[in-house]
Design a protein around this nucleic acid. Structure first.
Lengths: 262, 262
DNA sequence: CACGCTTACTCGTATAGACGAGTGGGCGAG
DNA sequence: CTCGCCCACTCGTCTATACGAGTAAGCGTG
């Protein structure tokens, strides 16, 4: 089709010791950065680049695989290679667990997404008792078994987050917390009703590449890391009453925190 | 050398529709997860795997490139492919900017690293006035030019973080803040001495794959994302007095925050 | 013993070719 | 006009081969 209109890409430098496939990747990256290819736009096909640069197809594929690893482009079988569009980001503010947000009937996720004009969904609901992992047990203060609440969050059909809450059985068993739908205000509202007054949360944040399982659940494109957030909720007596383990598609989130300067 | 002692890896499933190179990657990943190969240990060479599985070399390389993208392994030219060791992580607590940490003479980074028994270093120091980017200008409240302080942090010789602080010229020019070494307690101590009493910080956190430049400065292995943190410091009058833009090797950090439940 | 060369092994780069499979447009039959 | 098939184009997978270049150990020479 398009024999790659000249001017968009330059030539190779045979004197350079930079590998050919890197030079090609560099040129494509620069063209994308300069906006010569826009978000979602199709890049020249492998065959086009083979012709343009006079290299073999594997060399071109090698170049593309670099850009994929950087999260810049994604390939679609039978269609082409495209500049990866940036999804709308969800901003998580540090006051998102303030009591005042807990008053309404709907979950924070739903309310916020509706406000932002996107279509929120929660699925993969699973609530069950299970053995606590070593890590969870330590965080909750040496409990053996826990109530686990798993759910996946989607925005406009795209999975963005997968979370599991763990609670000690002596707190959660037989309460609305053990129900699939814990009611208005979520489990934090229920915890307070049960007399566990929340004092503060602790959040630990890591970033890493996703496991194959995470790629699947979050439908992640190549080159998209995940943010791994582990939140522990403490009551006014200093007891850890809940641990929430969350894996988020990193391209869909900005976390925001407010720190006192004291 | 080692004809790949049988038992470590299994066979391919020719009936599976899973691509051969994925099956090989799966087997290696599982072996690593199960601890059959330890951190830093050498994996079977490409030639070994070619023999073992009876496939071509490109297929094996393809499998390795998957694992590299996941950050599980890294290849060393002429030596082999190794299970990527997890570097020691630096924990950033949310009280790290508390005034009480600002009293001593040394920077927080140095003190903390010394305490952890590692050898800290700061280099690439650059302090200069420059034009503010659109983003920085917005965050600082429409300033044109800023004082930029750039520096790179290393632990035991490994770069872990690259940070740039931006300050409005009317605050920083002609003060110790414009000096390469701003003195004990760092620029936050100087800001307070200059009458800009700090009230709170705001931190924005993103995770993404590094740019080629970031790979270079932080000497990042393949499959290691970066954490991008943008901190704004506000004084008691609500003015943004500093913006600090930090890019961290994600495998070297855990961020930790404390949130009130109010 | 010390140094340098050789050599075997490792991954890096690149070519050429083959077939498979998903996509989408166009063309022809009804 | 509509539907379905075909075909061209696209990326996915795999083979076979070749040479380059970094590493480390061993061997031989001085």
């Amino acid at each position: 089709m398009s024999p790659l209109s000249s001017g968009l890409l330059g030539d190779l430098d045979p004197t350079s010791d930079r590998a050919v496939f890197r030079q090609i990747a560099d040129q494509l990256r620069e063209a994308i950065d300069r906006g010569r290819f826009r978000e979602g736009e199709k890049l020249p096909s492998e065959a086009d680049l083979v012709d343009h640069f006079g290299v073999s197809r594997m060399t071109v594929r090698n170049a593309f695989s670099i850009l994929q690893g950087e999260g810049l482009v994604h390939a679609e079988h039978g269609r082409g290679v495209f500049v990866r569009p940036r999804p709308p980001v969800r901003r998580l503010a540090s006051d998102r667990f303030a009591r005042r947000h807990r008053e309404q009937g709907k979950s924070a996720f739903i309310v916020e997404a509706d406000a932002a004009g996107s279509h929120p969904q929660v699925d993969s609901l699973e609530v069950k008792e299970e053995k606590a992992s070593q890590d969870i047990s330590t965080r909750l203060g040496s409990v053996r078994r826990v109530l686990a609440r798993r759910r996946r969050y989607l925005l406009d059909g795209k999975p963005v987050e997968f979370a599991t809450s763990y609670l000690p059985l002596d707190i959660a068993r037989g309460t609305p917390i053990a129900e699939p739908n814990p009611g208005p205000g979520g489990i934090y509202a229920r915890l307070e009703e049960l007399g566990h007054h929340l004092d503060h949360f602790e959040e630990e944040i890591r970033a890493r590449m996703p496991s194959p399982a995470e790629v699947k659940t979050l439908r992640l494109a190549a080159g998209v890391p995940v943010i791994h957030l582990i939140r522990t909720a403490f009551d006014t007596e200093g007891r850890a009453v809940e641990v929430c383990d969350t894996v988020m598609a990193a391209d869909a989130y900005v976390l925001s925190y407010q720190l006192p300067a004291t």
